[in-house]
Amino acid sequence: MTSRSVRFKTTWIWIFLVPTVVLYGVYTIYPIIASYWYSLVEWNGFDADQKFVGLSNYREVFADPLFWNSFKVTLFFMLLVVPARVLLTLLLAMVLNSPKLPLIGLLRSAFFIPVVTTTAIIGVVMRFILDPASGPITTVLTKLGFGGVDFLGDQHLALPTAAVLYVWKFFGVTMIYWLAALQTIPYELYEAARIDGAGTGQLFRHITLPMLKPFLIIITVLTVEETFHNFDLMYTLTGGGPYFHTEIIEIYIYRWAFAASIPQLGHASAAAVIFGLLVAVVGALQLWGVYAGRRLRGDQR
């Protein structure tokens, strides 16, 4: 191949890459850089004037007990959701991975349907279903002799309720991860173990679990990161209430940026930058998880 034809080919590769790079720059890189700048200014988003205030917005965010409340709520939500999502989906994936199970395609699809449903719609519909005065769950509970339960208005129940709905909504995603992971385990291993007299428990303990360990790290880290992005469900379900008990950091940022009578984009951006750092830490863990997973798989080979 001549140097001219190589140059021609490479130029075309770069030309095709430009739209992606430009769009990524405009819609991802630019907003990130802009939010760093906004976190250093006092700006309401309406005026042209942006007054540089240094780290003042960060000081205010750190001094705001409601920021720390939202930080705590975000982490607590993650602790509620991640173990349930990772472990329950593993159990279900193992069931759905069985070649003997009838209607396997239908069942897999059924568990995946909530994933493709718009999250905000789920939030709105669930508010009706969980309505403590006239919702269907209240009707059933009342017929059974219990009173209605205010799942979303009770300070102790709102966050666990949102967590259960979140787990249900995204159950299918983690399940697919596990199904893919399970299908990497050679069927011959199970067959050989069965011939040697291994029972179901032994198969799980000595074959399935060790083989899935690398995937466990990656799936857990991915799930942790996903739970940080839950604005749409939480906002439509509770709006952060009652009394900030479900105010995750994303709702805190939204409240300062858009819900204030005079928006405080500087304060909101400072909170967003801090939140971004938290996500970045998880991202670093994710990279480590991928690396550790590869190393473990290498060891197993």
């Binding site: 140097s3 190589v6 140059r7 021609f8 490479t10 130029t11 770069w14 890459l17 430009v18 790079v21 430009v22 720059g25 405009v26 890189i29 630019y30 802009a34």
Partner: peptide
């Protein structure tokens, strides 16, 4: 030798992004 280096592409992309963003 290639028609466009990575550095050239990056510069062009940043310019385009900044122009669009501005």
């Amino acid at each position: 030798m290639t028609g466009m280096t990575r550095r050239t592409l990056l510069g062009a992309s940043v310019f385009a992004a900044v122009s669009a963003a501005t």
